[in-house]
């Protein structure tokens, strides 16, 4: 399996369902960042989009998290492609 890193991070909103990416930046209030970190959505972590919509469902480690699409737009990831 080859992993290809793309230079500029893209918004999590542009990731296809089933694809994943490594979180690069999270542009939101500190308090929200701390809460998302507890749920497994944190800089440096891999997340997979299960489905877009309202809320968007993201898979991270052993669980899924439903998050507002407004937050998804503010999360930027590096995409790992095969």
């Amino acid at each position: 399996m080859n992993t290809l890193e793309i230079d500029s991070p893209i918004s999590l909103r542009d990731i296809e369902p089933g694809a994943s990416g490594r979180i690069k930046t999270m542009d939101m209030p500190e308090e929200t960042v701390a809460r998302l970190a507890g749920l497994g959505i944190c800089e440096g972590r891999n997340v997979k989009i299960v489905k877009h919509g309202e809320p968007c469902i993201v898979r991270t480690y052993g669980s899924r998290v439903g998050i507002a699409s407004s937050l998804v737009n503010q999360i930027h990831v590096d995409v790992a492609t095969i």
């Binding site: 929200t32 998302l36 749920l39 959505i41 809320p55 669980s63 998290v65 439903g66 998050i67 937050l71």
Partner: peptide, 9 residues
Amino acid sequence: QPMMLELPN
């Protein structure tokens, strides 16, 4: 507050 909610197994 925007939504963030765990969907446990």
